[in-house]
């Protein structure tokens, strides 16, 4: 007989899965928010910092690598979540589903 929702919620593995995913998901969300709104606040309050040349005499400003960094970080953070989820959560989920049958 299939387990009820409450029984599954009381399964220690379920608790572990939920806690781990919540911690990772919200941590990564916080990091993304900090990076992005950090960038936006620089745009809003300190345009000239973003306009600083990366080296004396160069036209490339510090804003360019910072902008590219935000784009790349979005991809990297998503990748971190995916690799962690693929490595741990799927197996844990499989076990919970198995035990709930």
């Amino acid at each position: 007989m299939a387990a009820s929702a409450i029984e599954i919620e009381n399964n220690p593995k379920f608790k572990q899965l939920v806690a781990a995913r919540k911690r990772l998901g919200w941590t990564l969300t916080a990091i993304m928010l900090i990076i992005y709104f950090g960038f936006i606040l620089l745009v809003a309050f300190d345009k000239s910092f973003l306009g600083t040349p990366i080296a004396p005499g160069s036209v490339t400003t510090i804003g360019i690598p910072i902008g590219i960094f935000v784009i790349v970080s979005a991809f990297v953070l998503t990748g971190i979540y995916m690799s962690r989820a693929n490595a741990h959560y799927d197996e844990l989920t499989r076990q919970i589903v198995e035990e709930s049958k």
């Binding site: 998901g25 969300t29 993304m32 935000v70 784009i71 979005a74 998503t78």
Partner: peptide, 13 residues
């Protein structure tokens, strides 16, 4: 570009 992209990680997480 940056603004349009950063919604995606949130959707993922």
């Amino acid at each position: 570009s940056v603004g349009w992209l950063v919604g995606w990680p949130i959707v993922t997480f």
